[in-house]
Amino acid sequence: MRKLQFIILLFCLWGRVCCAAEAVVPVIPTMVTVCARTGADVAEDSTVLRRSLGFIVEQEGFLLTTYESLTVPETGTLLPRIEVQLSSGAAQQAYRARVIGVEPTLNFAVLKIESDASFEVSTILGDRELLPGEPIFALTQADRPELHLVSGRLQSLNSKECYQQDLTATMLAAEIEIPSSGIGGPVFDGTGAVIGMYTGYHPPEDEDEHLDEEAELTHILPIFLAFNIYDSIKQRQSLASPWTGFSVRPLNAMEQQQFPIAQGKFTGGIALEYIWENSPAQAMGLKVDDILLRFAYYPIHSPADFQKWLYLYGVGRTVKLYILREGEILLQEYTIEERPAWAIPQ
């Protein structure tokens, strides 16, 4: 009897191991290799200066990759010819692509494959909540053209929604080692759903003082943040980072009690969390804890709203900012500026 129980126990343990093994074999999302060339035409002296990964997000051929992988290292200008290679089994197909828009601060870019074909789209994480400790995966291309899978686990979620001042806090942190050959590629869960993109971002050294010296964390751009401004960048075809000189946060419970105000015209807003010195916000006299009610014609109820409309209007457009301060509504007019090089978020 004991021998039978022992055999049954072994069977159960073996089943658990098999299930666990199956759980960590991920579905691979649709991948592309992006090649940025020096010459505008193949007939010219055209060499691949930059190479990265990317992933398709619309069947018409729109895809995401990193901005820096499309630029000349010394000058930061966009390289004249962009090509993408799609792999399907042993076969590879190359296409010309054009830059639709970029976000230099977040280091991501939107490309469009120049073809009327319909392309397989990567699955994007939906409403499922990410959990610290869950397994995650990424692909690298160290030995081209083969892709290599790397795995790890999600360590922590982002603590802020607005990256304007604190970029590190808006990133996912993970215990996963992704080499430079994985830059631009998606980071995904076991179902193949993309949760973020590896942009090669490294926080300033002092940001990492609290981390275990034996396991430096990898920072990943959350897909929700990229998609929050994706449509705005695509529609605006923006090639610059717009900014106002302030970052924002959701309202706390006490601030929410002030609404509705002005005969119900304003039902919420977001609070200013940080004001850059020598910035447009400082020049306008804005203050920390001011509440932004409306951006141009649009009510603002979340940091995502603010970032979406900031990019949709873009550099050079003049907008009206409706500000609540100590019960009084203030109106400020602002022509959106490009983020200067000195105002890089931490």
Rank of each mutant, 00 (worst) to 15 (best):
F6E: 09
F6L: 11
G15Q: 14
R16Q: 08
A21P: 00
V25Y: 08
P26W: 07
V27G: 00
A36N: 13
A36W: 11
T47E: 13
R51S: 09
S52N: 08
T65V: 08
P73E: 12
R81G: 01
E83F: 03
Q85S: 12
G89I: 01
Q92D: 00
R96A: 04
R96L: 03
A97W: 05
P104Y: 02
T105M: 15
L106C: 08
V110R: 11
L111D: 08
K112P: 02
L125W: 10
G126S: 15
R128Q: 06
R128I: 04
P135E: 05
A138M: 08
L139Y: 11
P145V: 13
E146Q: 11
L154F: 09
L154Q: 04
N158L: 12
S159V: 15
Q165F: 12
L172A: 11
E175W: 04
I176N: 10
G185Y: 06
D189W: 03
D189L: 08
G196S: 07
Y201N: 09
Y201E: 06
D206N: 07
D212L: 03
A215S: 13
L225F: 11
L225Y: 14
A226D: 04
Y230I: 01
K234L: 14
Q235R: 13
S238W: 07
L239W: 00
R249T: 15
A253R: 08
Q257M: 06
P260R: 00
G264V: 15
G269N: 02
E273F: 02
N278Q: 05
P280E: 02
V288D: 11
D290K: 04
L293G: 10
F295R: 05
H301F: 13
S302L: 03
P303T: 08
D305S: 12
Q307I: 07
Y313E: 09
G316Y: 04
V319L: 03
L324W: 06
G327C: 02
E338N: 02
P340C: 13
W342N: 14
W342H: 15
A343Y: 09
P345E: 11
